[in-house]
Design a binder for these strands. Structure first.
Lengths: 144, 144
DNA sequence: TTAATTTTGCAACATAGTTGCTTTTAGATA
DNA sequence: TATCTAAAAGCAACTATGTTGCAAAATTAA
């Protein structure tokens, strides 16, 4: 399989590596994430899988993938949740996320900009920083 | 009225300035925002006004305040919407927002850090930036 | 004070997400 | 390969959140 993501060679093996049983929904949904350049919402997944899977199954699959560090969630300004594949340095419980997210206001896609690291932020005295989420909005390279 | 925000002297006058009729719900909700150091969710407003106003009224009031540039919304990682007062340079249709938002994981409050400007971000070639949203997560000065 | 306009509250609806339970499927074992 | 067990899927019901249309009430203008 010619994968966009070098760390996922074969879907079944990848699932087994994460101690997940290999089911049709997990394979299909994971495949979607690999083929998709941008992030996906629950509704996208429902549509793109041809509504073959129950809403609940999709919710639970996403939850499982989140917990295993396979995907991460992205907050958006219109308050929907998006999900995108993690890189290999993410693991169960610990999501290592130093990239920023980019929403294209033309094509409405959301991309993880892996090349762009989150900046250093100097907080006012007394604040301690744990995590930083940067969401950029504008026009992507395909729509410019 | 000793206001935390210099640009709002008297609530009724402030509402009239924005061509809004002065109603009980608008006064109460605006007062909440002025007294509150952090941001507010719809549910907070419902509770803090003693459930005197209909859910729909609160939604519509927030919508009106957003449109008039009186408040702005803040996306959160758990996908709820928060609202906070704008500074005086915001106006109808145009929200001028160069500060970052801070979520305290202890007290669960969200603050606008007006002292901390959003950083300069260098996007990959081909991307054009319109808006930048930075949400920091950690411990606030009251909880440290 | 009255009339026109705006806003509120209510009911009904829509959408997103959750939970409990039963059936089905996957993986292990004989 | 058949059988057993554990995990996952599907279904129904429910909750939370947000929206829309409309009648009643409140606000503003005359």
């Amino acid at each position: 399989m010619a994968s966009r993501l070098s760390h996922i060679a074969k879907i079944s093996d990848f699932l087994r590596k994460h101690k997940l049983s290999v089911t049709e929904s997990r394979k299909q949904i994971l495949k979607l994430f690999i083929e998709q350049p941008g992030a996906l919402a629950h509704a996208d997944i429902e549509k793109k899988t041809g509504e073959r899977f129950d809403r609940v199954t999709i919710y639970r699959t996403l939850q499982t993938f989140l917990e295993k560090g396979i995907i991460h969630s992205i907050p958006t300004s219109d308050n929907s949740v998006l999900y995108a594949l993690c890189k290999e340095n993410c693991s169960e419980g610990r999501h290592v996320d130093h990239h920023i997210h980019f929403i294209c206001t033309i094509c409405q896609n959301t991309y993880c900009l892996d090349e762009t690291n989150t900046p250093d932020i100097k907080l006012p005295k007394g604040y301690r920083l744990n995590r930083l989420e940067v969401v950029a909005e504008g026009t992507c390279k395909n729509c410019i």
